[in-house]
Every structure is written in structure tokens, then in C-alpha cells.
């Protein structure tokens, strides 16, 4: 299978201007992701998962090492990548429709006006928001807002979908439903997905591979293959014995890191 995202010895972080300090968020990350693969990154808060996804998106530049997307080094954001944000990041002054249309307004995707409108309608229908085209984000529930976020990310049909804890802010029930929907959507659109979460269950139910990242500076601690049948939500994989074993295994990897994070937060 062809590799679509390749990270080679990526070290990246950010500068704290006021403190005149440089904080390494991620150290020496080497990872390749296949086309159409669903990769989930888990790790404690502050381990640099978000920084990594931002580097793939082209929002931050690696200090050393490089990230290739389809063989080309990432120079900045591009139409081949789209992102779903934890806090939805919807423009509050735009209707659902206008939010979903945003990628076409910001960048020329070489589509006719009619095609753009067709796409917008199609993806709004796909995330089940028909009838809410003219609503504003503040009129929607958290789950619905994130559907808008997902539609906006899918509408330009990018090869790569980046998701930064997209369901962290929605309630537990909606979250399960949204996970099922995302799995189904991605199965239809064949996107490569890089997905960040804190939830081990979410990681195992969604991912083909789960990448466990250690406490800061983040390094890849282990990569766990998830060999559960798809679609996971119709098989109810959570009831399978393998699921329990996987969960146990991933938790074993994450546990120490989580404890260190919690200690770090206290001191």
C-alpha cells in the first residue's frame, strides 16, 4: 500500500515568547501512514498530539526532521488536508450552509458554482443536517455543531482528514453515535484519517492502528494494530473478547504516562 503521510524524525514544539523559552512538544517522531488508513493517536494531555496534527496540517513547521504528504514536504496548509476541531471552530456569523461552503471561498478548488452548491448540499445531507442549512451555530447542539465541522472538512473531498479530539466536547451518548457515523462516512469516502483522542475506547473502536504517545516531550511509545472487524459499530466490537484484551493492552501503555501527566499537573 502506498504511504500517504510520512513523518521522519520530526521534532517540533513552540516558543513561549514571554518566558523566552522553547518547549519541545514532540521528539523524534517517525511514522508512516497508509492511504485510507485510520490512525488514532492517544496520549496524555500536553504530550504534543495536537502539535503533531498541526504540523501535518501545515500550521506549524517541524524544528527538525520532515513531514511528507504524498511524497512532497509540507510547506503549509493545502486542499489535500482538512481538519475537524475540538471546539468546532465554526464561524458564528455564518449559517450552517455558509460554514460548510467556507473551504471553497478561501481556496479555488476549480469547481463551478453549481458544483459547489451541489457538494455543500450533499455533505449537509450526509451529516444529517438537512433542514438546518439556514441555522446559525449558536442554535445547534454540540453534536450538531460538530457535524457541521465534519461536513466542512469533507466538502472539498480532501485525501486526508485530521481530527483533533473532535468528540471531546459532546456528551457521551452523542459521542458514540458520532463515532459510528464517522466510521461509516470514512468508509464511503476512503479518506486517510489521523485522529486524536484521550479515550482508549474511542481509539480502539475507530482506529486501524493506535499510536501511543508518551508524556512530554512526546515520543512514540508503541503502535498497536487493531484487528477488529469493520464496521465496528454493526459488529458491536465492544462485546468481543479481543476488544477487552486490546483495551487492557493500550491502557497498560497509557497508564504510566497518564499518571506522570497527573503528577505533572499537580506539581
Amino acid at each position: 500500500m502506498s504511504k500517504t503521510i510520512v513523518a521522519e524524525n520530526v521534532t517540533v514544539g513552540y516558543e513561549l515568547y514571554r518566558e523566552r523559552q522553547r518547549l519541545t512538544a514532540l521528539a523524534d517522531i517517525t511514522l508512516s501512514i497508509d492511504k485510507g488508513e485510520f490512525v488514532v493517536l492517544v496520549g496524555p494531555s500536553g504530550c504534543g498530539k495536537t502539535t503533531f496534527i498541526n504540523a501535518i496540517a501545515g500550521l506549524v513547521k517541524p524544528w527538525s526532521g520532515r513531514i511528507l504528504v504524498d511524497g512532497r514536504p509540507v510547506e503549509g496548509p493545502g486542499p489535500d488536508r482538512a481538519m475537524v476541531f475540538q471546539d468546532y471552530a465554526l464561524m458564528p456569523w455564518r449559517t450552517v450552509e455558509a460554514n460548510v461552503r467556507l473551504p471553497f471561498e478561501l481556496q479555488d478548488h476549480g469547481l463551478s458554482k453549481e458544483e459547489v452548491e451541489r457538494r455543500v448540499r450533499h455533505y449537509i445531507r450526509l451529516v444529517d443536517l438537512e433542514g438546518f442549512e439556514k441555522s446559525y451555530p449558536y442554535e445547534l447542539s454540540g453534536g450538531m455543531k460538530q457535524r457541521v465541522g465534519i461536513a466542512r472538512a469533507l466538502v472539498s473531498e480532501p485525501d486526508i482528514l485530521l481530527a483533533d479530539e473532535p468528540f471531546a466536547a459532546v456528551d457521551a451518548m452523542t459521542r458514540e453515535a458520532m463515532q459510528a457515523e464517522l466510521e461509516k462516512l470514512v468508509a464511503e469516502t476512503h479518506q486517510t484519517v489521523v485522529f486524536i483522542t484521550h479515550s482508549i475506547d474511542e481509539a480502539i473502536t475507530l482506529g486501524d492502528r493506535v499510536v501511543v504517545i508518551s508524556y512530554r516531550p512526546g515520543r512514540i511509545k508503541d503502535i498497536v494494530e487493531v484487528d477488529l472487524p469493520r464496521p465496528r459499530f454493526s459488529y458491536d466490537v465492544k462485546a468481543l473478547p479481543e476488544y477487552g484484551a486490546l483495551r487492557e493492552h493500550v491502557w497498560g501503555l497509557v497508564k504510566d504516562e497518564a499518571i506522570r501527566t497527573a503528577r505533572g499537573a499537580w506539581t
Binding site: G58, M83, F85, A89, P103, Q107
Partner: peptide, 14 residues
């Protein structure tokens, strides 16, 4: 809002 700016950048804003 920083995340609105990030979103716009991701979706190709100059």
C-alpha cells in the same frame, strides 16, 4: 478566536 483563525488557515485562507 485563535481556533477560528487556525480553521481558516487550514482551509486555505491567505
Amino acid at each position: 478566536d485563535k481556533s477560528l483563525l487556525a480553521a481558516a488557515k487550514v482551509f486555505g485562507a491567505k
